[in-house]
Every structure is written in C-alpha cells, then in structure tokens.
Design a binder for these strands. Structure first.
Lengths: 102, 102
DNA sequence: ATCACTTATCGTTGAATTACGATAAAAACT
DNA sequence: AGTTTTTATCGTAATTCAACGATAAGTGAT
C-alpha cells in the first residue's frame, strides 16, 4: 500500500491547477528538463515574468511542483509522484469496484 | 493505436472542468449510478437546481459527460472513455520517452 | 386546454482569475 | 558600497466563475 490516495478535494485542487494551458505547458517543460529556473520557463512561454511566477505559485500550492531557492534564483521540479497519484485517482474513479473514498 | 490522444489544450479544458469539487462530485455520482437524471443529482448535492444544471453544462462542454433528452427530463452519463483518455494523458506526461504532442 | 413536472436559460451579484508593469528583496559580482 | 541578476509580490484592470432566484420551454397527464 502506498498511501497516496487523494481526497476528492485534493484531486479537484490539482485539476484546477492543471486547468490552464500555460500551467500545462510549464509542467511539461519541467518534466522535459527535469529542473528549471523560473527564467528558463519565461524564455519558453510567451508570458511576462510576473505571470509565470504566479502560475508557478499555483502549481506549487497544488503540490504539483516544488521549488527551492538557490542563491538568487529558484529551481523548480515537477512532483512526478503527485502527478502519478492524480492519474491514478482518475483511473480509480473508473473502476466499478472501489471502496468509498472520502 | 487508439487515436484518443489529447492536445494540451483539450487536457487543460477537461482538467478545468474537473477543477471544482461539485463537478467531481457530479462525475462520481454519474459513475456510481451509470445513468442519472438532473433531478437525481440535485437530490444528492447541496446546490440549487440551476447551479447543478450549469455544472452539468460545463462537464458536457468538456466532453466528460453526455446528456440526452428523454421526454421532459435529461439523462446524463459519464464518458468513461474520455476520462480514461485524460488519465492516460497525464500518465503519458510522466514517461520520459514520448513523442512530441502538439 | 390546463396543470404538474423537469430542466435550461436569463439576469444579477459577489468573488476569483488572469494578465501586466512596477517595485521590492535577496544574492552575487565589481 | 554599488550594480546586476533573478524572482516574488503589489496594485490594477478586464474577464471569467459560481451561486442563486426567476422564468421560459418542453413533455406528459388530467
């Protein structure tokens, strides 16, 4: 047992965070390059730095990415485990015989 | 090959639709009872009929449920295939060796 | 034809989201 | 100390969302 089940609320929070093309793009980029500084993402996306920073915050608050300060910059990483948990939770919704989830 | 790949935009649209606890609840209910009339969902959720109807529309526009009129009522069904496609798309994001998606 | 029932839509309100530029804050360099 | 670099935060405007009650529109029964 992995104890990574999500509550419906947690799943909703994550989905909400993923519910914007820019944030999907950021997550993609983070998965592609493993580690990314904010500025790198700003390079890739057609958005202002402040906007990207806000999107990063949303993703972080949802637990989909982590960011650690490294000197003057902040290095972001995708949380693959959490993303996997979300995918699993959606799949689990489909299986007919599942125990009640909170 | 199943040709059910999602564009990032489509995935974002679906996630956005799932990004509200009420809509997760509606989808759950629909998966539990297979077919549900709008009124049935109104019974289960603590929301006004008009609000539920709106949420149903959002889910339908995202392609996560379908609804067909049956006389005076409308019968809704979860689109398991689409939900599975979303779960698969999220999982696919995690696998390192994947072809470019649009 | 009228009535009851069911659901979608309209109109409205308040709250949240999205985007941006400007600014602040922290670290590294000269 | 001052400058540069990098990022988070603030303030703001425009848009969208969420919720509700009221209403309309459709069907079926009396």
């Amino acid at each position: 047992m992995m104890e990574s089940d999500l509550t419906a609320l947690d799943a909703a929070r994550m989905c909400k965070a993923l519910g914007h093309p820019a944030r999907i793009g950021i997550l993609r980029q983070l998965l592609r390059e493993e580690r990314c500084i904010c500025g790198r993402i700003v390079e890739v996306l057609p958005l202002a730095q402040s906007t990207v920073s806000q999107h990063l915050k949303v993703l972080k608050d949802a637990g989909l990415i982590s960011g650690e300060v490294e000197g003057p910059r902040t290095c972001y990483c995708a949380d693959r485990q959490r993303l996997a948990a979300l995918a699993a939770a959606l799949s689990a919704m489909l299986s007919p015989c599942r125990e009640e989830q909170r």
